[in-house]
Every structure is written in structure tokens, then in C-alpha cells.
Nucleic acid binder design. Structure first.
Lengths: 326, 326
DNA sequence: CCTATTATGCTCACTCTGAGCATTAAATGC
DNA sequence: GCATTTAATGCTCAGAGTGAGCATAATAGG
């Protein structure tokens, strides 16, 4: 098509600061999500302290293939959906400053919950254990009160009026205080705010000044920045269920509308209007009746449905709108 | 808070296939976007054949800081917005199979177009040069006709009825054929489809069977997978302008509504209804009048506005809705 | 049979959006 | 000066989509 012109060495232009390359290694970290009943869960090691992770190997054709092969061995379930979350290489991520540089690539995966493998410490944990303020299904959670109080003193400790104003409006908008609406997607922003304000264990570990209010119940901590990665995953998933039909990866072959709704509510951390939810699902032609009936409902029996997997082929991008728009 | 339990070595469980770690290096690749008049442009090297890239250095505090420092030296402009696109490590990315493994982290950056540096081969290229079928501002582009014709023969060359059906519906939905609407966000899906069908230079290079129709005008190619990365960047940007106020990073301090609209149209590759566009912008309180007047408009002079940068602080997540919803 | 419980069907008001008509304010050509 | 052209700006209206709630159906348990 054309003869390639002489190539300019890009590094000569673009990477001036240092040409010393330290030993580099790559690590894969996975947020593996399942839903049991109305509890959203994640796969953890170390009794809930870390997310599953491991080095990138040559045996893996791609990053995604690497994560997939791990998790399928671990859960004995096919990973329904997998997507990349974020790549970090910040040197200040490391708690002990090694000379070695690590690139961490994080992934979000959806699956059905399986019995945990026999290893001690490996298992599923409800994610609201780490983010108790994120569960608004029974209304505004009470943990928010002490959190907002403490954030308020953080706002007033600001060095200047501008900083105080900025902090105040940030708290207002991320946490939905003072009449602002709660937006369930801003999981990461809320965690980062708590981190900066020194209200989570991880930031206290990192030498952020301890808050005078002392220990506040702000969820379980995790090692390294794993809780931050988890927040990223939850935020991504909460956003994604609104426009892609990924919830179905968390459900068995056949399910009732209510079970589907409970899964959505578990992920989103808020409740939805039942009739409108049904209307939206029915209208989009994403599911078809199996013909079966579930009569362990406690009331009128419910029709069973299955996800029409064909839609994924038909339209690569199906809009699975959910009544979570706000 | 708790005593850490004995850590399980994650690699023992999670990375079974090989423990040989090859020499690893990390590369940063940037899609730097600017808008000049009504042309969306990207910064390129090698006379348009490659995107700017370079190795990750220890001097960089983080991946993002690395990209930022490059680009600011290159363009002499502050990068307004920068975000990570995707991380690849697929070994089949490499054209010559080296033993060395490379992780490529790609970024999207927005800036104002500056005069290109003096280096030969370095400069700005309109992005529709690489994706001529993506520009629908003057209606459906004519290049689509031969492309769809050739895709049609690809559909009919399918080995089985199922594959043919799947191919046909994929073409229909990604390219908006046969009454389906055109969705400007599916840039990557369209490029991948053309790649698989052997209709772009890059796939012909990679040994995909050459199509009998021979050479088809499917835009300029790039080296390696840079055109694929560019497609990812365009898709991301087209999606993002609809819900975050990032367009303003591509505009000077003060601008008219029309200029703002032209920038949006350039990025989205489609036109929007002028009055509704104004209504939406005005309603969202994203801009404020500077008081100035632009009278080189050719008609009635237009008011000048500036972006209210304060909104970025006030609300970390501002919805900058644009009339591109569809 | 009555009540509790859940499933399911349907209505209604409100908002958002696409589309177009109408008016205003300049430059340009006669 | 005046008509014409060009673009900016203001406003209306119909249709789609959504939130909220009422009403009915079908089961289990007393």
C-alpha cells in the first residue's frame, strides 16, 4: 500500500526522563462477582483480606485468558462475562518500597457462586461487608450518619475557605447529603473521599493523619489497594447493568422476574419499582418463558424465564435498560 | 484492626500453566485528540503511520503521569483530560514473534491543537482518514456502499448456515444496514468486523485470506495495532461526550455555541439539531457568557461563552447530556 | 371461605426529546 | 437605503419513555 518511511524512534522523543528500566513484573487481580439470593458476593482469599491475584504467565495467550483460566479452576464454573477494569503502576501503591516495578491489571468477572474450594481462607464474601454505606435497599443506611458527621468535621478542618467549600460540595454530591440525590454508581468516588479524609483503615495505614474521632465503623479493610479495586469493580458493574444484559451471567438457566429483580437490586444497592421493572424487561425481548412455573414463591406462582442468549449474537450491543436511570 | 492470617500464595492456586517469566516490558501508547474547525485530529508519528508511544520509565510516578509528561512536551499544551483506554498483552499482537513479552497500556488524551514540533513525520491527522466510513455529518458516506457489498460476499462465503446468519446480523447491526439505525459509538466493532472479513490492510498483513474483491478503499492503515487502538479511543470519546463535559477540553477559553456544536459533531460524526443543542447546553448550566460577541459568523453575531470549570469541582460527576442519545 | 402474599395487567401524569416554525441581528449586493 | 442572505436565538408541540400507583389473579394457610 505504501513504503514505510524511516521510523523515528519514539522513545527519543517521548521518554526523556530516564532510560533505566527496572525489573518489571505484571500481576493480574480479579474481582469475581456472584449473587446468592439477595447478597452480592466476591471471591476472596485470606479470609476476605485480598482479592485473587497472580502473576502474568507466558502460558496465557492474553491477559483475559489468564484471568479466565484461573477463575474457572477456582470456581468450577465458566466465567460468564469478563472485562478489564484498570491498570495501575503507581509506585506508591507498594507498601514496602521495593526497587521492582509492578504493573497490576485488574479484571471484573461474573459467575455463578460455586462451593468454595477446600482451601482455608478462600471463599465468598458479601461485598457490603466492605462498603456498608452502599446498601440502600432498606432505605438510607444508618452507618451514613456517623460517617457524614465525621466528614463534616473533616470539611471544617480545611486549611482555607476555598478548600472547605470544595470539600463540602464534594461530600454533598458524592454522598447525597443535604437534599442531593444518592447516586449508586459513585462507589469509587465515595471510597476515595473516605480515604482522603482518613476514615478508612487503608488510609490510616498509609500515614494519613488519624482522625480525632478515632475508629469509625467504615467497613472491613483489605490488603494493599484491593478495596479500592473492589470499589472500581462495583462501580463498573452498577453502571453496566443499566445498558448491557450482564445480570443474566449471575443467574441460573431459568429464573423468575423477581429473582432477576433481586439480583439487580443486590448489585445496585437500591430497590426498583416491581411493575415498571417487569415492563422494561418484557418490552426488550431479552427473555423468553421456559413454560415452567415456580410455585415456592409464597403467593401466586411465577412464570420462569430464560435469557435469550441469541440477542448477544444478533446485536453485539444490546441495550438492557433497567429502571435505575435516575 | 485484625491480625492478618497466614497468606496463601495466590500463584500456587491461580497460575498453574507456567512459572517461567519472560523478560517483560511496558509500553505506553497515546491517542491524543484535538479538534480544528470541524476536523477531529490525532497526534501521529511516522507521517501518520503510528501513534506516539514509548516505554514506561521509573521517572514516572504513575502511568498517567508518564503519558502526560510526554504529550505536554510534544504539543506545548496542557493535556486537558486524560484517561486509560485499555491494556493489551496478547502475544499475537507482535508481528515478529520475539521471546520478549510486552504489555501495552493505551491512553486517550484531549488537548488543543498546537503547531506540530519540527520533527519530520510528526503531526496531526484527521481521524476520518483512517475511518472514512465513520463520518456521517453529510449523510451516509458513499464509501459504505462498496464496503457493504464486499461484506455481503463475506457473509455468503460463510461455511455454514449458522455462521452466515450470525455474520449477516452482525453486519446489519454494526453498520446499520437494512433499516437498522447507525450507532456512531460502535467504531471498534465496525473496525473489528472489517478486520475479520479481511477488508483492512492490517488483517491482510496478518495472513487473513485476501478477499477476491481485492483492494478496497477502507481508510489508511497504521502500523501494528495502532488503528485498532485509535478505534477504541474514538469509540470511548464518542460515548463519553454524552455524559461528561469533556468537549470543552478541545475548545479555547471562549467559544460560541456553534463552535461547541461543530466540535461535538466532528467527534460524533453526525449532525445535531441546532436549537435542541442550545437548549440542552443552556439548561445544564455548564457554560456562562463571557459578555463578548463574535461577529465573524457570517450572520447575526453570536454570544461568546466559557466553560464553568467550577462544575468539575462542584459535582465530580456532571452529566453533560448531549442530543446524541438515539 | 377469608386472609396474606406474591404475580401480573393497566392507567395516568410528568419529563425529556426530536422536529420544526418564527423572529432577530448582523453582512452583502444592488 | 433596501432587499437578500446567513446565522443566532426564542418558542411550541407531539410522541416516547418513565415513575408511581391502582386493580386483579392465583396460590397457601388458617
Amino acid at each position: 500500500m505504501r513504503t514505510p518511511p524511516p521510523r523515528i524512534d519514539p522513545s527519543a522523543d517521548l521518554a526523556p526522563e530516564s532510560h533505566f528500566l527496572p525489573p518489571l513484573s505484571a500481576e493480574l487481580i480479579a474481582v469475581i462477582v456472584a449473587v446468592t439470593g439477595d447478597s452480592p458476593r466476591i471471591l476472596t482469599l485470606d479470609r476476605g483480606l485480598t482479592l485473587p491475584s497472580g502473576p502474568l504467565e507466558t502460558g496465557h495467550r492474553s491477559l483475559q485468558a489468564g484471568v479466565r483460566s484461573w477463575v474457572e479452576r477456582k470456581t468450577h464454573h465458566a466465567l460468564g462475562h469478563i472485562e478489564q477494569l484498570y491498570t495501575f503502576a503507581d509506585q506508591d501503591r507498594l507498601e514496602d518500597s521495593e526497587p521492582k516495578q509492578v504493573i497490576s491489571v485488574s479484571y471484573l468477572g461474573l459467575t455463578l457462586e460455586a462451593t468454595a474450594s477446600g482451601d482455608p481462607g478462600v471463599g465468598w464474601q458479601g461485598w457490603y461487608r466492605y462498603f456498608p454505606w452502599e446498601d440502600h435497599r432498606l432505605g438510607r443506611p444508618l452507618v451514613l450518619d456517623p460517617i457524614l458527621d465525621t466528614l463534616d468535621t473533616w470539611v471544617h478542618r480545611a486549611a482555607s475557605v476555598e478548600i472547605r467549600r470544595a470539600r463540602m460540595s464534594r461530600v454533598r454530591h458524592t454522598f447525597g447529603a443535604k437534599g442531593e440525590p444518592w447516586n449508586e454508581e459513585w462507589v469509587l468516588q465515595r471510597y476515595e473521599l473516605l480515604y482522603e479524609a482518613g476514615l478508612v483503615e487503608e488510609s490510616r495505614r498509609r500515614g494519613y493523619r488519624n482522625h480525632p474521632a478515632g475508629r469509625l465503623a467504615t467497613g472491613e479493610g483489605m490488603q494493599h489497594d484491593h478495596r479500592r479495586i473492589l470499589a472500581t469493580g462495583i462501580a463498573r458493574l452498577r453502571a453496566k447493568i443499566k445498558y448491557r444484559p450482564v445480570v443474566f451471567e449471575l443467574l441460573p438457566e431459568s429464573f423468575t422476574y423477581l429473582r432477576l429483580q433481586k439480583a439487580v437490586e443486590a448489585l445496585a444497592g437500591r430497590r426498583v419499582h416491581k411493575q415498571n421493572f417487569r415492563r422494561l424487561i418484557a418490552f426488550q425481548n431479552l427473555v423468553e418463558p421456559t413454560g415452567g412455573i415456580e410455585n415456592q414463591t409464597g403467593g401466586r406462582p411465577a412464570c420462569l424465564y430464560r435469557f435469550r442468549r441469541a440477542v448477544l449474537q444478533e446485536r453485539m450491543m444490546v441495550g438492557s435498560k433497567l429502571p435505575l436511570a435516575k
